[in-house]
């Protein structure tokens, strides 16, 4: 009887202590998790005039807070991809000499469809849409990604 009573109070105190600890730690941990910043749901950005982009060149365009690589191929088509390397987050670039997309961080290589073809990147680059309207290049968010 005596022992049971002691056990009971111990459990009560222990449980209370645990609850107290949780109620202290919970706000601390959640404080550290950065709040979601409202991202404007950007659907398209203007990248510039067609004439500003010579064939066989690439340029990083700001798509809201994301970098997008706009490429004009040798044949004059426009393509756009997320410029964030699928390996470890570096920013890729267009190589005029090899006509590939290249990531300098660990020598990752993508072809002009965004497919990862060499080096460590595990996945292709996410494509963006490109539209030319009255000589103006417009980059669009891929619709299938909402």
């Amino acid at each position: 009887m005596e022992l049971n009573r002691r056990k009971f109070t111990n459990m009560l105190i222990g449980g209370g202590l645990l609850g107290w600890l949780a109620s202290v730690l919970y706000p601390l941990f959640t404080y550290l998790i950065p709040p979601r910043v409202e991202e404007q749901s950007l659907n398209s950005v203007k990248a510039g005039k067609v004439d500003d982009f010579p064939p066989n060149s690439g340029k990083i365009i700001k798509f809201g807070r994301k970098p997008v690589l706009l490429i004009r191929t040798e044949t004059g088509d426009f393509r756009a991809f997320s410029a964030t390397c699928t390996h470890l987050d570096c920013i890729v670039q267009y190589r005029e000499d090899t006509k590939h997309i290249w990531c300098a961080c660990h020598n990752g290589m993508f072809d002009l469809t965004g497919k990862n073809i060499a080096g460590p990147p595990p996945r292709p680059l996410m494509p963006y849409g490109v539209r030319v309207q009255k000589n103006e290049i417009i980059i669009e968010k891929p619709t299938n990604l909402g």
Binding site: I60, I91, Q93, A104, C105
Partner: peptide, 9 residues
């Protein structure tokens, strides 16, 4: 944050 990574990272 909007420039390609340079070589030698």
């Amino acid at each position: 944050p909007f420039a390609p990574a340079p070589a030698g990272i």
